[in-house]
Design a protein around this nucleic acid. Structure first.
Length: 423
DNA sequence: CATCCACAGGAAAACGCGGTTG
DNA sequence: CAACCGCGTTTTCCTGTGGATG
């Protein structure tokens, strides 16, 4: 076997088959030229090794993002250094506002400070994003505390679990901090879990316990038993969503780490930040958009400009609506299809009655029991609400009042929606 | 001005379905 | 196992609506 993939360009017209070889070389060279993502790991938090991750975090916080919140929480914790015990903390903030990240960063820094001053302090992270039951939550806590990976089997009495947790907690001298992510995620009886953490556990264990709970629901504490609130004696912290400036900084850092910086225009970043802050202020969403835009750029010009951002935002939009459509109930989708079939046949506007006729036909051809016009009319207003159609009410005087249903989707989506539907 | 179209949308009854009880 | 219940969905029935039309 001869090695053909040298770094140099193959000279054309060398041997038979060189055409193909040079074609491949050519394509390869071109894709090399457009390469923009140098280090994809930095665009995906899960893929980053632990050490790198904390490095990145440090840099983020060095840029004075979330400084106010960090300061407040740090202040809240300082009494630990004097051997005090701060009350439980409740941290509110929407998804992607950096609650978890900030707290992890802060606690690890705090731990270092404690180490330097010989104050015994440890923290544990309990992630309740997935599990839901009281038992599952206890399990997570137990796992975090005793460090092993084994799951406690089901069927073990809950008292035993509590016993184990208390035991493990007692192993740690000094202050023990539990960081509970998505603390509102316990389904049947969140009260029991919190009662245990806030009331039972501190009594059973020798160490001082500090609870920090994260949630994205502002009304969470209203759903709680007031008695729990009283013995938690909690302090509130609020993380408001990132604004465009914060997002811009975060994005810039990512770009420096992951992309070829001189192929990225500043305006593009500003645009992404603006998009994301207008939508939700979710940093993850912003990075997601950045990744998408970078990929678009790689496939086309190799530069990341505002245009690439726009197309990326567009495709993201399309993905979102298609996902929405896929998630619709069967009947709702039928009505939606009926709307667009009717629109295709008739003019740019159709009435409820027309849609209902088409819908009936569709039902007959698909052997589905049709619903009443009343119901369909409700669904039309539902679809309107979700922006899948445009259906304002108009009065046509003598000819009654109806909804004037018009399209509000891109033709490509409609095309895909109507695939497999005849006429 | 009254009329009347072609629906909207409220209210209540009926249905369907999983879960519980005697 | 039937009877019953709770709850969301669907049907039935109904009243209301705004302006072109006669």
């Amino acid at each position: 076997m001869e090695k053909t993939s040298t770094g140099k360009h193959a000279q054309p017209g060398h041997k038979d088959g060189d055409r193909t070889i040079s074609l491949i070389e050519d394509l390869y060279a071109r894709s090399k030229k457009n390469v923009l993502i140098l280090n994809p790991d930095y665009l995906d938090d899960d893929k980053l090794p632990e050490g790198e991750r904390t490095e990145v975090l440090k840099e983020i916080f060095n840029r004075r993002i979330r400084e106010r919140q960090l300061k407040r929480i740090a202040q809240h914790l300082t009494s630990i250094l004097d051997g005090g015990q701060p009350p439980a903390a409740l941290v509110y903030g929407p998804t992607g506002s950096g609650k978890t990240v900030s707290l992890l960063h802060l606690l690890s820094s705090f731990q270092k400070v404690c180490q330097a001053r010989n104050v015994p302090f440890r923290y544990f992270y309990v992630d309740l994003t997935s599990p839901k039951t009281y038992f599952g939550a206890l399990n997570k806590v137990a796992l975090a505390l005793d460090g092993s990976t084994r799951r406690y089997r089901k069927g073990i009495p809950i008292e035993y679990m509590q016993e184990r947790i208390a035991e493990a907690a007692s192993q740690h001298p000094g202050t023990l901090c539990l960081l509970i992510d998505e603390a509102d995620n316990i389904r049947p009886n969140p009260d029991a879990f919190l009662t245990f953490l806030g009331k039972t556990l501190p009594r059973k264990t020798s160490c001082r316990l500090v609870l920090i709970m994260l949630t994205n629901r502002l009304d969470w504490e209203k759903a709680l038993d007031p008695r729990i609130l009283s013995f938690l004696k909690k302090t509130d912290f609020i993380f408001e969503p990132y604004d465009a400036l914060d997002l811009y900084e975060i994005l810039k850092l990512r770009v420096e780490k992951a992309l070829d910086t001189n192929k990225v225009e500043e305006g593009a970043l500003r645009k992404i930040a603006a998009y994301a802050s207008r939508e939700t202020g979710d940093a993850r969403k912003a990075v997601e958009l950045l990744v998408k835009a970078a990929k678009v750029a790689e496939d086309t010009t190799g530069r990341l400009t505002q245009r690439e951002v726009d197309t990326a935002a567009e495709t993201l939009e399309v993905d979102k609506t298609e996902e929405l459509i896929r998630a619709l109930a069967a009947q709702q989708r039928l009505v939606l299809i009926a709307c667009y079939v009717a629109l295709r046949r008739g003019r740019s506007k159709v009435s409820t009655g027309q849609v209902y006729e088409v819908y009936n036909e569709l039902c007959r051809s698909q052997r589905v029991k049709p619903l009443t016009e009343r119901r369909v009319s409700d669904m039309i207003s539902f679809l309107d609400l979700y922006g899948l159609i445009n259906a304002p009410m108009v009065s046509r005087g003598r000819y009654g009042q109806t909804r004037e249903i018009a399209s509000s989707l891109r033709s490509e989506i409609v095309e895909r929606l109507l695939q497999g539907v005849d006429e």
